[in-house]
């Protein structure tokens, strides 16, 4: 995130021999898992129960 201050980098001209930019790879970020609402949980439970009842009946 941006802060209010800005730092200016100082790159020396003398003494720098070689600059190489290697291709980097990027990792996917850690994933926080969203919490489910009461309604959603209830819906899913009802659907699961219904599916089980159907399976039992077959």
């Amino acid at each position: 995130s941006e802060t209010g201050l800005q730092f200016h980098e100082v790159l020396p001209r003398n003494g720098q021999v070689y600059q190489e930019d290697l291709p980097t790879t990027v990792l996917c970020k850690p994933k926080l898992m969203p919490l489910k609402s009461v309604t959603l949980e209830r819906l899913e439970k009802m659907q699961r129960d219904a599916q089980e009842t159907v399976k039992e009946q077959e």
Binding site: K29, K31, L32, P34, L35, K36, S37, L40, L43
Partner: peptide, 22 residues
């Protein structure tokens, strides 16, 4: 909001939400 570089995006093009409803 933080960009995609920091916060993963969901399929809808919005950042991953903290709470999910139907």
């Amino acid at each position: 909001a933080p960009s995609q570089g920091v916060r993963p995006m969901s399929q809808s093009g919005r950042p991953l939400t903290g709470f999910v409803r139907p």
